[in-house]
Design a protein around this nucleic acid. Structure first.
Lengths: 234, 234
DNA sequence: TGAATAGTGTCTTTCAGACAGTATTGG
DNA sequence: CCAATACTGTCTGAAAGACACTATTCA
């Protein structure tokens, strides 16, 4: 950090958030549509929610990510993890820019997506989303999906995709949707219960068949790391 | 990314690199001393090698990290991984700033550290380094050590700390130094050899005792991920 | 020969995979 | 009863942990 003067051009600094949820038996990501008018780049294209760091409002990068998340979803304390940063001369036509990317996991039950008029959930198919995204957001989304998949192999992250009360088969389905492959029931149950992650509540989920025990996340539970991955494909 | 004008204050953008090696039976990190004179913050303090992104010279963040690494060590193609970013109003007295942090692994045999006059290797003790570092570099270093330790549990990263030819006990020692605990010999050998990561060369290391087979990394070998961690502590 | 380190073999433990079998609901 | 889903149990296999054992060098 040598070089006395600060009088040189600075890159643009942005924060983008990849917001995931699981609904309708698929992993979904929340995208926003860029304005079609004005002199904005990528008019009308879909993009990750995000934007410039506001050095007046944002005390740090995470607060900035939280602010953008809340703007689009109304959700205030989701699971939020830094994903990485992307910066280069060409990624934004307005000049050298660097974005700090985060990813968030939300239960589908939050009304998120109906909260901002320009935001909409898109299903993720084969690790991607249908529309071509603005900037390098397609690349960032792919990285987020990879990170999520690889962490789901050995962590309890899908617990953050669940509503307040859920059954073990519900949670297993969330794992299977993210990983896009079936998991073995008894090994799954053993592992989750041994992790001391969830606790039963005094209710059952009723249905046209045998009722299932409802659980909830234990209070203030940080993600659990398992020492083995699930049956690695191949 | 809405908001037409770009006419607002931009954060400072820097890149810092946590450069690790293993030597003298300890994990070491390369630090540089900040100038004592001038109007620079933290005069005379030790800091991670790094500095401002130069939008003329650096085509992207990784190229910027590579440049800083080469400036201080002369090494051109080490293992380099993005660690994360730290940005806030207060971390740099010159104003709102964000740094993109990388970490690199180097074999001790590169003359690195003798390359730049202001750079010096410091041993890491209990996850930290003796001097109090400039900016939030102490925090970044701690995160880097944590990341390195946790990845060494289930990857072949320490292979990048080895010279061109090395023995299995050498490699095991590198694992043990990073993890700061002994590993079981036969399980270690089984695992590494099964990973198809290294190949024997037609030479042995001689010593005052039984000679050991020398190996080298297989060409262009990406890090290997194991499906289990090593004997997890606790 | 003995010290020192390299390398192998053997037994046990752990935990996932496979899959069968039991449990509990509604129709 | 049957269909459907929840849940449990039992066997097997893969890989690590523990640790004893053999191998090869130099002094």
């Amino acid at each position: 950090m040598t070089g006395g003067s600060l009088d040189f051009p600075r890159p643009l600094t942005t924060v983008d958030v990849v917001i995931f949820t699981v609904k309708d038996d698929a992993l979904h990501v929340l995208l926003v549509q860029r304005p079609a008018a004005g002199d904005e780049p990528f008019p009308g294209a879909w993009a990750l929610p995000g934007g410039f760091v506001d050095i007046e409002k944002d005390k740090d990068l995470e607060a900035c990510a939280m602010r953008k998340l809340k703007d689009k979803t109304g959700v205030v304390s989701p699971y939020l993890e830094q994903l990485g940063s992307w910066g280069s001369a060409g990624r934004d036509p307005r000049g050298w820019s660097a974005t700090h990317a985060y990813f968030a996991l939300l239960p589908a039950t939050t009304g998120a997506g109906t909260h901002a008029a320009d935001a909409q959930w898109f299903p993720i198919v084969a690790g991607k989303v249908k529309p071509r995204l603005a900037f390098d957001h397609g690349e960032i989304l792919e990285a987020a999906v990879l990170r999520l998949r690889s962490k789901v192999e050995y962590t309890s992250l899908p617990a953050y995709l669940m509503p307040g009360e859920f059954t073990l088969p519900d949670l297993q389905r969330a794992y299977e949707i993210v990983l896009d492959r079936p998991l073995e029931k008894s090994a799954f149950r053993t592992r989750i219960l041994a992790a001391d992650l969830i606790e039963p509540v005094a209710r059952m989920r009723k249905g046209p068949n045998r009722p299932a025990q409802l659980y909830r996340l234990k209070k203030a539970k940080a993600p659990v790391y398992f020492v083995r991955t699930f049956n690695p494909p191949g």
